[in-house]
């Protein structure tokens, strides 16, 4: 479904942020990407829908090479949902309008059809009663659930999550992870950048560990948590798991 082949990316021509990335994500797979801050994990998933360009290598979604200049990137993005750390809901639109905007503008759905789909998704994320509210009146957790519904309204083949719970108060993290877990169980192909190791352990099929722009570990959650191969991965795990046990 998603394939990276020898991808390299630099910032300002000198800072090498992604180094020789090759990986494949199969349809229906849930892949968690973790690593210390500055390791390039957010950059990695942003290259998939070309929010970040790459200088070398190829990135494919299905049979479309997304970093080919001849590819219409807007058609690719229709099929790739993206959830941001800071939600990025449109503050001037109601919850319902946030979700129906892209289906109506991009897929030319009628308002009635787009609203019907939006309400079905709002029921799924437990926020049907907030359809007429504005983002500023929602809690962080509610905003993020709306953002997930907004992404799903385009009926994407892949959903990408860029630290979806990092900006949330602790008591709201659970409600967002629950929505993501339901989504994973419904068979969605997902790549999730997160520090939520509980989610990785329970929901992920695979865990990638990135450090300094390199994929150091690419393995099952089981193997990653019990027997990491690299020192830096062990170090990282010690840091993120410590608060949970202590």
């Amino acid at each position: 479904m998603i394939r990276f082949s020898q991808v390299n990316k630099w910032y300002d021509r000198e800072h090498h942020v992604l180094k020789h990335i090759s990986l494949e994500v199969k349809a229906g797979e849930v892949v968690v990407v973790c690593g210390p801050s500055g390791s390039g994990k957010s950059t990695l998933i942003r290259t998939i829908n070309q929010l970040e360009p790459v200088e070398e290598g190829e990135i494919w979604i299905g049979d479309v090479q997304v970093n080919n200049p001849r590819t219409n990137i807007n058609r690719v993005r229709e099929n790739v949902g993206f959830v941001f750390q800071h939600f990025n809901l449109y503050p001037h639109l109601s919850v319902l309008e946030n979700i129906t905007l892209a289906p109506m503008q991009v897929k030319k759905l009628s308002r009635a059809a787009a609203e019907e789909r939006a309400i079905a998704l709002l029921i799924k994320v437990g926020l049907a009663h907030k359809k007429d509210a504005y983002p500023a009146n929602l809690s962080g957790g509610q905003q993020q659930r709306v953002a997930i519904a907004r992404g799903l309204a385009m009926e994407p083949k892949v959903m990408l999550f860029d630290e979806p719970t990092s900006a949330l108060d602790p008591e709201m993290i659970g409600e967002v992870l629950k929505v993501m877990q339901d989504l994973a169980e419904s068979g969605m192909t997902m790549m999730v950048v997160t520090h939520e190791m509980g989610f990785a352990r329970e929901v992920a099929d695979r865990v990638l560990f990135l450090d300094h722009g390199e994929i150091l570990e690419d393995t099952t959650p089981e193997a990653f948590f019990t027997n990491p191969q690299h020192d830096r991965a062990r170090q990282f795990l010690k840091q993120v798991l410590a608060p949970m046990h202590g």
Binding site: L51, R77, E78, L89, P91, A102, R150
Partner: peptide, 29 residues
């Protein structure tokens, strides 16, 4: 915020749509 345009592009909106639907309604307010 930069995320506004980014979120719109990520959903497949074209540049004119991003301005018309997301950026200008907020900027004018």
């Amino acid at each position: 915020p930069r995320g506004q345009a980014m979120a719109a592009y990520a959903l497949g909106l074209s540049l004119p749509q991003v301005y018309r639907q997301v950026l200008l309604p907020q900027a004018f307010r």
